[in-house]
């Protein structure tokens, strides 16, 4: 893998009058887990959709895995887990995972079963998605994003509704993927989860407030927790860059 997986240069995206992403620049090196942190409506999902090429930036450049987005060809190497589980509820778990795998060019049955086992749903592989619990659906959604072994994983609040034990498992799996060179972008507003990211970006009103490792962000603000650090940046008491 070469150095940077994602490069955003002064990217803007408007919805009507609202600047959902406002001249944001960001570079994410390959093989790390990057956390996007921010309150509701900060622009995290919009940013992820820009990276996935689902939206075209009004201004600025989005480069992903060396390609200028939107670029259809590069999508085979991206796994996107949407914020609300987006699944065919009238298909079984296996049918869903196999479908999204095949769409991205992965039609190996063994791989499908492997990711289903990974999200701990081997016993429910033949169940219709409509009969699963909320957290299980979330896990199927993750499996669909992973199945084709993407080089870049975009996860929009992946652990919402997932129980603590499985959440720990997820994070150790993410770590393993990182070691294999996979880049992961995670959005979240769960701060203790954010602690696990290699780097964090604080986002508010479509702008990047601050960036760095969890430790350095806390250190810069002199705060003990990420929450307090975030609030300090949000109030503008600390000015970086």
């Amino acid at each position: 893998m070469n150095d940077d997986a994602i490069i955003l240069e002064s990217v803007s995206k408007r919805f009507g009058k609202l600047e959902a992403v406002d001249g944001l620049s960001l570079t994410i090196p390959a093989g790390i887990t990057y956390g996007l942190l921010g309150p509701n409506g900060a622009g995290k999902t919009t940013l992820i959709r820009l990276i996935a090429g689902l939206l075209r930036a009004d201004a600025g450049a989005v480069r992903v895995l060396g390609a200028s987005m939107p670029d259809k060809a590069i999508l085979a190497r991206i796994g996107y887990m949407t914020q609300a589980y987006a699944l065919y509820t009238d298909l079984s778990v296996r049918e869903n995972v196999a479908f999204f795998g095949a769409m991205a060019g992965q039609s190996d049955r063994a791989r499908v079963d492997e990711v289903i086992a990974l999200v701990d749903l081997a016993e429910r592989a033949s169940s219709l998605v409509s009969t699963l619990s909320g957290g299980m659906k979330q896990r199927v959604s993750l499996a669909c994003a992973l199945v084709h072994r993407p080089a870049l994983l975009l996860l929009d609040e992946p652990t919402v509704g997932v129980d603590p034990q499985l959440r720990v498992q997820f994070w150790s799996y993410f770590r393993r993927l990182n070691n294999e060179g996979v880049t992961i972008v995670v959005s979240s507003h769960v701060m203790d989860e954010a602690e696990r990211c290699d780097r964090l970006g604080f986002i508010r009103q479509g702008r990047l407030l601050a960036e760095g490792s969890s430790a350095s962000l806390r250190q810069q603000t002199g705060m003990a927790t990420l929450e307090e650090a975030f609030l300090a940046f949000a109030e503008g008491t600390i000015v970086t860059r």
């Binding site: 999508l75 949407t82 987006a86």
Partner: peptide
């Protein structure tokens, strides 16, 4: 409405 279109569009499918 179930969001699978968004997901489909995030695959290489045109």
């Amino acid at each position: 409405s179930q969001g699978t279109m968004e997901r489909l569009l995030a695959t290489p499918a045109t």
